[in-house]
Simulated assay, not measured.
Amino acid sequence: MASPQIDVDEIVETLEQIRQRGHSAHTVFQDWVNLMLFALQRRDDPYLEIVDDYRTRGDMDHPEGKRSVDLFSKAFGQLQERMVATDADVLGAAYEEYGMSSDAFGQHFTPHTVCEMMAEIAGVAGESETHGRQTVLDPACGSGRMLLVAGRKQPDALFFGQDKDPLCARMTALNCCFLNLDAYVIQGDSLTVEFQQAWQTSYSALGGSVRELDEEEVSELREWVTDAFENTVEDGTQSRATERAGSEDRTTPVTASVPSEQASLGAFESSD
């Protein structure tokens, strides 16, 4: 179940209105995540491709504010409101709660309290307790909950999250963007060092930004992560789940600039 301190009923109710128009729950949630990710990257073509799937004659007969695209936007707003109120992984909680009625979801994420404990055990320290920049790695990140907890403790760190589930990787990218973290999120199996897709999120004073890396950048990132991991093992500083390591002596991977786009409701504006 969703974490008890996180009320996601409004979000689930809004998404349920879309599902009742003839869509599966998993498709609705997956499309919602993709719409948010594409909107924040200003990627109009894939965004509109998803929107067109919902623009059936019956759906467009609904008044403005009640169409599926409007409900997706409403759920985005509700998500942001709950994140501001709780400073927690609301997106992951919504996934768990909304997916209870569907076998297509099948993921249950580590409770927030356990993430807090694991971050403490792994040695993620507060800003005033560190010298140099920390690197925090979660090789099976789920919705990115562990990274969010670590990000609250050490927001200036560089974060790496990886998960073989495409939807989980996208949720992590969104969460890192919402929390305004410098992070790389990889979709692929960490055990086989498989990198299928990757996203970079970047901090700015105006709010987080996110962009998908191209194939060359993904290859460069894979090489950097592999070298960094091998160096960590050789130094004998590997941690079991979340890794802490100084990164001042390493070149940051994929340094292309990311346009700053605040994660705001305006990202969901669309034309009829």
Rank of each mutant, 00 (worst) to 15 (best):
3 S>F: 11
5 Q>D: 15
6 I>S: 10
7 D>G: 12
7 D>F: 04
7 D>T: 08
10 E>P: 00
14 T>E: 01
14 T>N: 09
19 R>Y: 05
26 H>T: 03
27 T>Q: 15
30 Q>M: 11
31 D>N: 11
31 D>W: 04
31 D>M: 11
33 V>D: 02
35 L>E: 10
36 M>F: 10
38 F>A: 04
41 Q>D: 06
42 R>Y: 03
44 D>E: 09
45 D>P: 09
46 P>V: 10
47 Y>E: 02
55 R>C: 01
60 M>Y: 00
63 P>E: 00
70 D>W: 14
71 L>G: 00
72 F>A: 00
72 F>L: 05
75 A>L: 08
77 G>M: 03
78 Q>H: 00
79 L>I: 11
79 L>M: 14
80 Q>N: 07
83 M>I: 13
83 M>D: 05
88 A>K: 05
91 L>M: 01
93 A>S: 14
94 A>W: 02
95 Y>D: 05
101 S>E: 11
104 A>N: 06
105 F>P: 01
107 Q>F: 15
109 F>H: 04
109 F>R: 08
112 H>K: 13
113 T>N: 12
114 V>A: 11
117 M>C: 06
117 M>L: 07
119 A>F: 07
123 G>A: 14
125 A>K: 04
126 G>I: 03
127 E>V: 15
127 E>Y: 06
127 E>Q: 14
135 T>W: 09
136 V>F: 03
136 V>A: 07
136 V>C: 07
137 L>Q: 11
139 P>S: 03
140 A>N: 08
141 C>V: 06
142 G>M: 10
143 S>G: 10
143 S>V: 00
144 G>Y: 07
146 M>F: 13
148 L>Y: 07
149 V>R: 01
152 R>I: 04
155 P>S: 09
156 D>C: 06
161 G>D: 02
161 G>F: 01
165 D>R: 06
168 C>R: 05
170 R>W: 03
175 N>H: 09
175 N>E: 03
182 D>P: 02
184 Y>M: 12
186 I>V: 07
187 Q>N: 15
188 G>M: 05
188 G>L: 03
189 D>M: 11
190 S>D: 13
191 L>C: 06
191 L>R: 12
192 T>Y: 08
193 V>Y: 11
195 F>S: 07
197 Q>M: 13
198 A>P: 11
198 A>S: 12
199 W>H: 11
200 Q>V: 08
201 T>E: 00
205 A>F: 13
206 L>W: 02
211 R>S: 07
214 D>C: 10
215 E>C: 02
218 V>K: 04
218 V>C: 15
223 E>F: 14
223 E>P: 03
224 W>R: 14
226 T>N: 15
226 T>K: 15
226 T>L: 14
226 T>G: 11
229 F>Y: 13
235 D>N: 08
236 G>W: 12
237 T>Q: 00
238 Q>E: 12
238 Q>P: 00
238 Q>S: 06
242 T>A: 12
243 E>I: 10
245 A>V: 09
245 A>H: 04
249 D>G: 08
250 R>L: 14
251 T>D: 14
251 T>H: 08
252 T>K: 07
254 V>E: 07
257 S>E: 12
257 S>A: 15
261 E>T: 08
262 Q>D: 09
262 Q>A: 11
263 A>Y: 00
265 L>T: 01
266 G>K: 11
268 F>E: 05
268 F>W: 14
269 E>Q: 12
269 E>P: 01
269 E>I: 13
270 S>F: 07
271 S>A: 04
271 S>L: 01
